[in-house]
């Protein structure tokens, strides 16, 4: 699977812009579905360790993409999100989402980019005998690409990424002074317990 330089730059920019995970869908070339031309954020609520798309925003995204003349296989097959730390290995929540949401599609890719740079991509397909395999992730420099658009990407981030209460608390505290390590760990642990008590351990 290959990212255009523009899509890759945008994904890195958005990963590093805030304190949370982010997620979205990649937009594929119509003739080469594993060549990713762009990465689009969906309106989402995020924490440093979670990302959850807004259901209405997913539907709006589908409508907008159809109106733009794209087919679902171009905009709804490559689910991309980031992870904190160095591990891009899917969590249990990731696996459950991938199976439930994309398990009825002919094919789909779960792609993860970790904060530390590690990547993960798994292609699953349900045509023929079905199956799945981990595929390499690369940046394809062989085609012309547009310039970075940081102001636009920043605006897209502000419009779509809603940090959860813990992150708001953290940002407010940053104005008053940095959190101590113990305060930060306490907050993360509390948040993780809230999330994973609903989802089960990863």
């Amino acid at each position: 699977m290959r990212f255009s330089p523009l899509a890759w730059a945008k994904l890195l920019f958005l990963r590093d812009l805030g304190p949370t995970e982010v997620g979205g869908f990649a937009i594929s070339d119509a003739q080469d579905l594993l060549y990713l031309e762009d990465f689009v954020l969906i309106r989402q609520e995020c924490s440093p360790v979670t990302v959850a798309f807004d259901d209405d925003a997913v539907a709006e995204f589908f409508d907008a993409q159809i109106d733009a003349g794209r087919r679902p296989e171009q905009f709804a097959r490559v689910w991309v999100h980031t992870h904190p730390g160095n591990s891009a290995t899917p969590s249990r929540v990731d696996e459950e989402t991938f199976a439930r949401v994309f398990g009825r599609s002919d094919w789909a890719v779960m792609a993860i980019l970790a904060q530390g740079g590690q990547t993960f991509a798994r292609l699953q397909f349900h045509t023929g005998p079905g199956g799945s395999l981990q595929i390499p992730v690369a940046v394809d420099w062989s085609r012309p690409f547009a310039a970075s658009a940081w102001p636009d990407w920043n605006q897209e981030y502000l419009q779509n990424v809603r940090p959860d209460e813990f992150c708001h608390h953290q940002q407010i505290r940053e104005h008053a002074g940095p959190l101590s390590v113990s305060e930060m760990l306490d907050g993360l642990t509390e948040h993780s317990h809230q999330f994973f008590n609903e989802k089960g351990p990863t």
């Binding site: 979670t50 997913v58 589908f62 409508d63 730390g85 290995t89 929540v93 990731d94 949401v101 990863t202």
Partner: peptide, 16 residues
């Protein structure tokens, strides 16, 4: 009419 069936509860989590 324009009818759409779109997926819900698309969520991910980092490994803890």
């Amino acid at each position: 009419d324009r009818v759409s069936f779109t997926p819900t509860k698309i969520e991910g989590a980092g490994r803890t």
